[in-house]
Structures are given as structure tokens and as C-alpha cells.
């Protein structure tokens, strides 16, 4: 055979090479500009060991109060995520290609979802703390908005990807738009809805534990107080319990996703 083997790597073009060099330069500059140095690591490492040392053994004298606070946090997450999911569905229908009643409505719904998604949850939390006051209600609203930003987009995509055939079959029967959405699109998209909803619960639980740092309710405030008072052993208890909660929620979510797929 007279066929020569192709080269293992393609030679990069001028544009590709320039981009590569620029990216490499930017990464190096990023390290310099954020001021991370070996010195930080040298000083930081013993400090980490010291704090960790003061965390153990964790102080469990107040565990009843912490568990109760954790439960409240979890409930705040659930309430926010349920509200968010309920509102996500209509917004997603308005935002989905082929389901939205009008292009202007579609763009508006997509804009709203994008706004909810791109502004970080802590910023929403600050906004709601200012508007509705300190405490769980601000946290619930934050999680709701965060859920709409995430689920709205995935619900819309899931509905756009459903079987066109059954939609057309119903259209040819003379079904209404809502009839088609509820009897074909939503049943078809259901596994995807459930998977997305479970991700939202996990995400909400993770974010609910930090919302307290800015006063939006939940266990985060206990964590902040413990650190502020240098009660690292109490903080350790809180962190371990948060860890257990998040892992349990993720495992439960994983298990349920496998069942619906």
C-alpha cells in the first residue's frame, strides 16, 4: 500500500496559534494579578491546620438547636423550589419555540428567565432582604427566583424537544393549543421535568445554607455567628450536618432520577 499515514496533529493556523498564546498569557497574568503567592500558601497552610485543630472535636452541646435550624433551612429550600417550579412551567411554555403564543411574549419570557439565571443568588438575597426584610421569606423568594432561572430554561428546552409527530396528530384532530400542551407535550417532557426538578432541589438545598450569611434566613447565620465568636467547634458541627444533608439530598435525587428515566 502506498498510502502514507496522516500526521498525528494538525499544524495550527496563524489565528489558532495567536489565540493560544493570548490565552496562555492571560492565564499567567490572572495568577499574578490576583496576588496568589507561595508566601500565602506558606502562611496559610499552618493556619488551616490550626483552625482545623480547633474544630475537633466538634461541639455538639447545642445540636438540638442546630438540627432544628437545619430542618428550617431545608423547609425554606423546599418551599422556594416548589414555588419556583410551579411558576417555571407557565413561563417555560411562553418561552418555548412552537408553544409561545407570540414572538414578543417569547422574547419577554426568555429575557425574564435569563435575568433570573444570570444574577447570582446572593445578589437576589440582598435585594429581597432589603425589600421584604431579614429572615426566611427573603430566602424563599431568592430560591424561587433562582429555580425559575434554572428550570424555566430546561423546561422550555425539554418541551421543544418533544415528539413533533404526536403534536401534529393532535393538531390534525383540531385540538386547541392548550390541549396539545397538556396532553402531548407535558407527558412527553415529564422525565426531563422530573430530572430537572430534582436538580433544582439539590441546588436549592446547597444555596439555602449560605443565604443566611446575608440575612436571608436559614442555618447560614448560625455558621457566621460561630465563626465570628471563634467557636470553631460549633462551626464544625454545623458544617458536618450541612454536609450530611446535602449528600443525602443528592443521593436521594440520584436514586429518584434513575427510577424515572
Amino acid at each position: 500500500m502506498n498510502v502514507s499515514a496522516p500526521p498525528r496533529f494538525e499544524r495550527p493556523g496563524a489565528v489558532g496559534f495567536t489565540l493560544f498564546v493570548a490565552a496562555a498569557a492571560f492565564i499567567i497574568w490572572s495568577f499574578q494579578n490576583s496576588g496568589l503567592s507561595l508566601e500565602h500558601l506558606e502562611r496559610g497552610f499552618p493556619a488551616i491546620i490550626r483552625v482545623l485543630g480547633r474544630m475537633f472535636p466538634p461541639d455538639i452541646t447545642d445540636i438540638d438547636r442546630i438540627l432544628w435550624s437545619l430542618l428550617t433551612t431545608f423547609q425554606m429550600a423546599i418551599a422556594g423550589v416548589v414555588l419556583g417550579l410551579i411558576l417555571s412551567l407557565p413561563i417555560a411554555i411562553l418561552a418555548a419555540d412552537g408553544l409561545s403564543p407570540h414572538p414578543v411574549v417569547k422574547q419577554a419570557a426568555r429575557g425574564l428567565i435569563a435575568l433570573f439565571r444570570t444574577v447570582p443568588d446572593l445578589v437576589w438575597a440582598l435585594i429581597f432582604v432589603i425589600t421584604v426584610g431579614l429572615g426566611s421569606p427573603a430566602g424563599i423568594l431568592t430560591i424561587m427566583v433562582d429555580t425559575i432561572g434554572f428550570a424555566g430554561r430546561f423546561f422550555a428546552t425539554a418541551m421543544e424537544e418533544t415528539d413533533k409527530g404526536s403534536r401534529e396528530a393532535l393538531a390534525s384532530i383540531g385540538a386547541t393549543r392548550s390541549g396539545i400542551v397538556f396532553s402531548s407535550v407535558i407527558p412527553d417532557a415529564m422525565p426531563s421535568f422530573i430530572a430537572t426538578s430534582l436538580f433544582c432541589v439539590e441546588k436549592a438545598v446547597r444555596s439555602s445554607v449560605v443565604l443566611g450569611l446575608v440575612g436571608a434566613g436559614g442555618i447560614g447565620v448560625e455558621l457566621k455567628v460561630a465563626f465570628d465568636l471563634f467557636e470553631y467547634d460549633v462551626a464544625a458541627t454545623i458544617i458536618i450536618l450541612i454536609f450530611i444533608l446535602v449528600v443525602c439530598v443528592e443521593q436521594a435525587g440520584e436514586w429518584m432520577r434513575r427510577r424515572v428515566m
Binding site: S166, L170, I173, G174, A175, T176, S178, G179, P187
Partner: peptide, 26 residues
């Protein structure tokens, strides 16, 4: 072109959407 995740009976009931709309025929 049936709705694959629904049972046969639900799919047949969809045919009624020719005559009426609303949750009863979903």
C-alpha cells in the same frame, strides 16, 4: 404518532379533543 408515555386509553380519549377541550380530555 401517539403520546408514547401515556396508556392506550388516554391516547384514544385524546380523539375527543375534536369535540371538546379542557382537562377532561387530557
Amino acid at each position: 404518532f401517539l403520546v408514547s408515555r401515556l396508556c392506550a386509553l388516554s391516547n384514544v380519549i385524546h380523539g375527543m379533543q375534536a369535540r371538546r377541550s379542557g382537562p377532561q380530555v387530557w
